[in-house]
């Protein structure tokens, strides 16, 4: 492959409160690909997602991250967002008093400005939002409500996917968006993700369960364990994990360390 990766992580080590969480991650995601990063609780999945989105509480010990060939780590979270990185939060934040519609119009317009596109006025944005809301079967009443305020767990996740479809990122990172969803909501979320698949775009699905992968077929599956990617493979790896659990990976690592 002579194309350049959209996201390239080289030996990334990250610490918080003196404790190393990511212990040397190396990963390349090419445009058009869907990667799934799986792993047990505490393996560092969410840390990786937060670091990529620019959360400042983490300390980078070593390594580098290139986004479309550019050094990502010095960029502010808003800079990353404007350049096309989107993180769907595991725990979306509630913002009372600020309507979903207003919040997203502000977000979409900052991104459009960056891309040299004209800003959308209230009417244009409403039309766009209604169209995208249909896609993720988001109740239109949620557009007028305050951001995530009083939303059910499923509505919050759907709202994240809704935001993603509006912002049309180049690199979408979904942090356990599939957790805590019933099967209908899961199907809708998958539909939103699949609609976003595009040769110029990459998607990283961080997940604890294999379930979502029944609806979104990944190109590559990685297993994150204790801050390292210990195994990578095709979609069949996800099935194997589902069947055998993460204990099997642990044993394999210990085994290889002994030999």
């Amino acid at each position: 492959m002579n194309r350049r990766p959209l996201l390239e992580i080289r030996n990334l080590r990250v610490r918080i409160n003196g404790q190393e969480i990511l212990k040397g991650i190396t990963l390349a995601v090419y445009p058009g690909e869907v990667h799934s990063i799986m792993g047990p609780n505490g393996s560092g999945k969410s840390t990786l997602a937060q670091v990529l989105a620019g959360r400042e509480v983490y300390e980078i010990v070593e390594g580098e991250v290139l986004y479309d060939g550019e050094d990502l780590l010095p960029m502010s979270p808003e800079e990353r967002a404007r350049r096309g990185i989107f993180l769907a939060f595991q725990y979306p934040v509630e913002i009372p008093g600020v309507s979903n519609l207003y919040f997203l119009k502000a977000a979409v317009n900052t991104v459009r400005k960056q891309r040299g596109l004209p800003e959308l006025d209230a009417m244009e944005f409403l039309a766009l939002a209604r169209e995208k809301a249909k896609l993720v079967e988001l109740d239109e009443s949620l557009l007028q409500r305050a951001v995530n305020d009083g939303f059910s767990g499923g509505e919050k996740k759907r709202n994240e996917i809704f935001q993603m479809t509006l912002l049309e990122p180049r690199l979408a990172i979904l942090d356990e968006t599939d957790s805590g969803l019933d099967i209908d909501a899961l199907r809708v979320v998958a539909q939103g993700i699949n609609a976003l698949r595009h040769p110029d775009r990459a998607i990283v699905l961080i997940t604890h369960y294999q379930r979502l992968l029944n609806y979104v077929t990944p190109d590559v599956v990685h297993v994150l364990y204790d801050g390292r990617i210990v195994k990578s493979g095709g979609k069949e790896l996800a099935l194997e994990l589902e069947e055998k659990g993460y204990g099997w990976i642990a044993e394999e690592i210990i085994g290889s360390a002994r030999s």
């Binding site: 620019g54 979270p77 808003e78 939060f89 509630e94 913002i95 600020v98 919040f103 502000a106 912002l167």
Partner: peptide, 22 residues
């Protein structure tokens, strides 16, 4: 919440003011 707003492209000052208003 600040990080959430910034991750959607809003600059830090706008995010602070939006949350203060909230």
């Amino acid at each position: 919440a600040l990080f959430y707003c910034r991750s959607r492209g809003l600059d830090a000052e706008t995010a602070r003011e939006m949350l203060t208003y909230a």
